[in-house]
Amino acid sequence: MRILVADDDPQIVRALRLTLQSVGYEIVTAADGPEAIRLAASTHPDIVMLDLGMPALDGVDVIRAVRGWSDVPILVVSGRTGSADKVEALDAGADDYVTKPFAIDELLARLRALGRRRGGIESVAVLRIGECEIDLAAKAVLRGGERVRLTPTEWRILEQLARAEGRLVTRAELLTELWGTAEVRDTGYLRIYIAQLRKKLEPDPASPTHILTEAGMGYRLVADA
């Protein structure tokens, strides 16, 4: 298995590399948050192991970014021992949490457990629709290299559609994502947001070919092949 180790402490990285390689793992390393996200997208690790206190981008933000396109198991290995830190990391999408200093035997056991659960659904980090690129890792949309400005709500809708690319996302699922409950009365706001997304992303918003309506059910995003 390939493990991405993201930690800014070179001594810890060296120790983990030697230990994990000795038991047969292939190791890729990152020294800061942005590099961790880039390598998670480009090297397709079987497990991501990361510290929370990294330069440039906090580990929790890395977890959220990776979860934008991947279900790869994530093991946090951190010196932060507070329960609030653990809860935040797990709520962001981490699968397990080990505090430093750690016992190697325990760490290896947790890696084996996560390895048995690997193989979840994973999609590409970048989707293309017409002239636009949806970058799920960077949480951005580009058209001709220029960033398309989306509101936070527009991005949340687009991200959910993109993560389910090709599959139906029901109105109830979108409403739950936006407002925390599927019971919220839909007063047309969802249709307005979808129309705004089409205006910004579709080649012909009046005849959409990528953000499609499934009558009476919800919406589907179809990316270019």
Rank of each mutant, 00 (worst) to 15 (best):
L57N: 07
V23W: 00
A40K: 00
I37G: 00
A215V: 14
V87A: 04
I74K: 03
G120D: 11
G144S: 13
V62S: 02
K86E: 13
L16H: 03
D85Q: 05
T81M: 13
T151E: 13
G145A: 10
R80L: 09
P208M: 08
G166M: 09
M49P: 00
D105M: 01
Y25H: 00
V66L: 08
T81L: 13
D71E: 14
I3L: 03
E173G: 00
R143V: 13
G53L: 05
T187G: 03
L142G: 01
R167I: 10
F102M: 05
A223T: 04
D91A: 11
D58T: 15
T181K: 07
T151R: 14
L107F: 04
E165F: 03
A137H: 06
L108A: 01
L90R: 08
I192W: 11
R116N: 15
T151G: 13
G144W: 15
T81G: 11
R171D: 14
L75T: 02
E88I: 12
A92M: 07
R149L: 05
L178N: 05
Q21S: 10
Y193K: 14
I192A: 12
G68D: 05
A103T: 05
A172L: 13
W155P: 09
R167S: 13
L174A: 08
G82D: 09
A30R: 03
G166W: 12
L190G: 12
S83G: 02
D85Y: 03
L39A: 05
H210W: 13
R118P: 00
S70A: 11
E106P: 04
Q160V: 10
K139N: 08
A89F: 06
L111K: 00
E122P: 03
T170L: 10
T170F: 11
V48Q: 07
A162W: 06
R156N: 09
R149K: 05
E133W: 04
T43P: 01
P45N: 03
V76A: 08
E35S: 06
D204K: 14
R116A: 15
L57M: 15
R220L: 05
A15S: 06
L52G: 01
I12T: 13
R220H: 06
V5G: 01
L50W: 07
Q196G: 09
T181Y: 04
G216H: 06
I74A: 02
D8E: 15
S70T: 10
T176V: 02
E106H: 08
G93Q: 09
S22E: 02
L57D: 07
E165W: 01
E26A: 06
L90Y: 12
V5W: 01
I104C: 02
V48H: 07
D7A: 08
D135K: 11
R128D: 15
A15D: 03
L158S: 00
I37P: 00
V76L: 11
E154Q: 14
W155V: 06
I104Y: 03
P10T: 07
L178S: 02
D224V: 09
V66S: 05
A41Q: 07
G53M: 08
K199L: 15
E146G: 15
R118L: 01
V5C: 04
S83A: 10
L175N: 08
T43Y: 01
V62R: 02
R80K: 10
L75G: 00
H210Y: 14
V48A: 10
Q11V: 06
D7L: 07
R118H: 04
Q21D: 09
D96G: 03
L161Y: 07
G82N: 08
